[in-house]
Simulated assay, not measured.
Amino acid sequence: MAEVKLTAETRTDFGKGAARRIRRDDKVPCVIYGHGTDPRHVAVDGHALLMALRTPNVLINLDIDGKKQLVIPKEVQREALRGFLVHVDLLIVKKGEKVTVEIPIHTEGELAPGGNLLEYILNALPVEAEATHIPEGVTISVEGLEAGHTIHAKDIPLPRGTTLAVDGEDAVLQIVAAQTEPVEEEEAEAEGAAAEAAGEGEAAPAEAGAEGEGGG
């Protein structure tokens, strides 16, 4: 598990105006809490924190006014359109303790032929792991799986020291059969009706001509 060193400074100004000023200085307002301590408000360099958060559940060795503190990101707020960091909650952790986090789910392999689809029931897997050894994710093989197959939480191999934080019977992934697009059927029916109408239209003038010749 990656450990990143960052520097933070204590902040005493609060509210939306103060937060905007912090972000104008390319910093991110953060709150540190946990282990029965009072929440502590700090500001962290925005670019450095953004790069650190590219690793899920990254362990951050935070230097706060000269004092070290181990933390992990607990809640990250981003601006909806541009995605920049708005606010981050940081949870204090200690070496050796267990924490509950969600880790990314990755898949490998090809499904059985037939155009089947892979559906994610869970986008991340809740697990309990040592705070300083949180897995970066789990990888599930879907090689050759056919429609109707379901992968449950208990089926996923976990790194040593990591346990599930959900019921083992909970569905994580399932393989579903590809559905025929109803639009294609409707288009085929429409084309058939159009061809039939065209055939009737071509026959009508011939019949009219025949009647005219008989009447002369």
Score class of each variant (00 low, 15 high):
3 E>W: 14
3 E>L: 06
7 T>Q: 11
9 E>Y: 14
11 R>T: 09
12 T>I: 12
15 G>C: 06
24 R>C: 02
26 D>H: 15
35 H>E: 05
35 H>P: 10
36 G>S: 01
36 G>D: 10
38 D>K: 15
39 P>Q: 13
44 V>P: 12
46 G>K: 15
48 A>Q: 00
49 L>Q: 05
50 L>E: 11
50 L>R: 15
55 T>Q: 02
57 N>T: 03
58 V>K: 00
59 L>R: 04
64 I>K: 06
64 I>H: 04
65 D>N: 15
66 G>S: 08
67 K>N: 08
68 K>M: 15
71 V>E: 00
79 E>G: 07
80 A>N: 03
93 V>S: 03
94 K>M: 13
94 K>A: 13
97 E>D: 11
99 V>K: 02
117 L>W: 09
117 L>F: 07
118 L>K: 06
120 Y>M: 00
121 I>C: 11
122 L>H: 06
122 L>T: 09
125 L>E: 06
126 P>C: 06
130 E>T: 14
134 I>F: 01
138 V>H: 01
138 V>G: 03
139 T>S: 08
140 I>L: 03
144 G>E: 04
151 I>V: 03
152 H>W: 09
165 A>D: 02
172 V>L: 01
172 V>A: 04
173 L>D: 05
180 T>F: 12
188 A>L: 15
197 A>K: 05
201 G>L: 11
203 A>L: 07
211 E>D: 10
212 G>Y: 09
214 G>I: 09
216 G>S: 11
